[in-house]
């Protein structure tokens, strides 16, 4: 049964099978998956994939109920988790907005009022333009934007969220100035780009893949330290791995990624945190998870425990800097 050597997994499995009594925690009633987006959003997909894998592989004895609490850009779900303090049967699915939302909106929860369990993947961001636009690489596009400041429209999902943060980073790194237009979601921003109503967007691979395949949009670069994974060609000429990193392409931004995170309420036993971290770790080792990662072109990276805390601290600090610079922080 024991395949992994990580102490966490090994001890958790031993515990599950009654080996060591001291950390014996298991859910005793149905577990609620709280999704901090509305049905159909990226976070919703993430949670439902995890749900389908857990039930398919019988990774948990109890059944799972998924509820969507996407109000206030997801704040509704986090507040719900805050109120449920001490209840280890409520798992909240989100992104880095758990610790970023409270900066930009007055909310009745603090980021540390939830317990981080795991980050399961990093979603990538790319710079996209309409396929008919004359720009073949990021450098020439940015030069054109610089030549005519505040006339190129950059579309994105929501306001003061990841897309606008990235736009702000591009602006301060290159000196270009965009008009940022917030849409309801990445899908809408993708269609607006395909229709030529905006000049570029910073969509995740998944949000623009269909339009790229159909030849309506094209990617210029990816905001990742390394190129995306090799895979089948998307268009006749290009696959995900053929897209240069933005650093290669001349935009000095090393890395901009969005973690897909899972949380528990505050005040839950540490055994419960370890239990779910273990279940999620097992999820991330299944072929179905691999398939989900490939299909959505995310980066597969499982983080838990101290590693996760470190990641959150550095991601938080990086974003905070942009927020301060843009004057988005509310008191």
């Amino acid at each position: 049964m024991i395949k992994k050597t990580s102490w966490l997994v090994a001890s958790a499995i031993a515990v599950t099978f009654g080996g060591m009594a001291h950390a014996d925690w298991k859910p005793t009633k149905p577990v609620e998956f709280v999704v901090t987006s509305s049905p159909g959003g990226g976070t919703d997909n993430f949670a439902r994939v995890v749900q389908s894998i857990i039930s398919k592989h019988n990774l948990m004895d109890q059944s799972i109920v998924v509820t969507n609490k996407g109000g206030g850009s997801g704040a509704e779900g986090y507040l719900y988790a805050k109120v449920a303090a001490g209840d280890p049967h409520k798992l909240t699915f989100g992104t880095n907005n758990e610790y970023l939302l409270p900066y930009v909106a007055k909310l009745a929860y603090k980021p540390d009022e939830l317990t981080p369990v795991a980050a399961m993947a990093l979603d990538e961001f790319l710079l996209w333009v309409n396929a008919t636009s004359p720009y073949q690489d990021a450098k020439s596009y940015i030069e054109a934007v610089k030549a005519k400041p505040e006339s190129f429209k950059m579309g994105g999902s929501q306001s003061k969220d990841t897309d606008q943060t990235l736009t702000s980073l591009i602006q301060s790194a290159t000196g270009a100035k965009f008009i940022y237009v917030p849409f309801q979601g990445g899908g809408a921003a993708g269609v607006q780009l395909a229709g030529g109503h905006i000049d570029s967007n910073t969509n995740n691979p998944n949000e623009n893949a269909g339009q790229w395949k159909a030849g309506a949009v094209k990617p210029l670069c990816v905001f990742s330290p390394t190129r995306l994974q090799e895979g089948p060609k998307v268009t006749a000429a290009m696959g995900w791995a053929d897209i240069p990193t933005c650093k290669e392409a001349g935009i000095p931004i090393d890395q901009f990624q969005m973690p897909r995170t899972v949380w528990l309420p505050a005040g839950v036993p540490s055994e419960a945190v370890a239990y779910y971290a273990d279940v999620l770790k097992k999820v991330s080792a299944t072929p179905e998870w691999k398939e989900y990662i490939d299909r959505t072109s995310q980066t597969n990276r499982f983080l838990a425990g101290e590693e996760l805390k470190k990641f959150i601290a550095s991601d938080d600090a990086k974003n905070r800097k942009v927020f301060e610079q843009e004057g988005w922080i509310v008191r």
Partner: peptide, 26 residues
């Protein structure tokens, strides 16, 4: 287009993706 017009459509679109189909022009 891959843009859902209603909550129901959004859930169905999520389904399409889980079945391994990508909504979109292709």
């Amino acid at each position: 287009l891959g843009v859902p017009g209603s909550a129901t459509a959004a859930v169905m679109m999520g389904g399409l993706m889980i079945w391994g189909l990508n909504p979109g022009p292709m």
